[in-house]
Amino acid sequence: MSDWLPKSAAGRRWLGLAPSYFVIGIFMLIPMVIMGVFSFLEPNPYGGVKPIGSLAAYIKIAFEYDLEDKLVFNPGYLNIIFRSFQLSFGATLLCLIFGFPVAYYITLQPENRRNFYIYLVTIPFWTNLLIRTFAWIIILGRGGVIEAPLLATGIIDDSLRMMYSDGAIAIGLTYSYLPLMVLPIYASLEKLDFRLLDAASDLYANRFEIMTKVVIPLSKPGIIAGCILVFIPCLGAFIAPNLLGGGKKLMLGSLVQFQFASARNWPFGGALSMLLLSVVIITLIFYARAAKNRAAMEGSA
């Protein structure tokens, strides 16, 4: 059956990676290289680029020309980027706090029921994000699902103004990305051998220690995968900030969108995403290094 496979380990390795390399290499890497090149060109006023080299797009991220045409520092875009990172971080944390216990609970269920729970987690996401977000407006809005009974019973006599706030954005983002956190954690927890917990318990570990010293370390790959899956898409999110937050402050996602739509400055949009890409890649490399070092230390100890 496996005769046709290459004999050497390296050959097999590359055969296994070939489909990924082929699909992502052609349909993702090449387009991104094109976009990278675009970010060093001049914008064509009505979308697209002119074949003239320019660093203007990168300069624009942190500087602007004032009324006397002098180049001055402009923290505007950097603020937007910083704000987006903050928000994504918060949403990731919320997803983790909310999602981890649930993923753990699912693994505690009998085997035949686990897939049912996993399915329950995904069903809501069969409906369109925009429609789900609208449902949140009905829930949080003036005289909505939450307010109506409170108003009727006289507990409150004016709107709580829950909508169009940072809290509403946080709820929206958490809601949008929860399954991206729960599923990977579940996938890595599911293989947890509960005899380990018994062993720990026999060694007089208390419940808290069992959680922090056994369960969480063992589910780390899932937690990391979940955090990455939530954090990065959150950076580019624009539906929740716009619809639930009222779009009063630009986020990175809307800013990039804006460059390809109204502002028609493709190089700047490209430059912003190259910046984002480098930040994410550098973070991941650091993380990989740290993980490797730790593994090496544990191995030698």
């Binding site: 003036r142 619809l243 779009g247």
Partner: peptide
């Protein structure tokens, strides 16, 4: 003007008006 703005919105204007938001 922004000080009075509750939302920047191009999708649900009629809903906002009807609910009084």
């Amino acid at each position: 003007q922004k000080e009075s703005v509750v939302a920047y919105n191009s999708e649900t204007m009629s809903d906002l008006l009807a609910s009084g938001e």
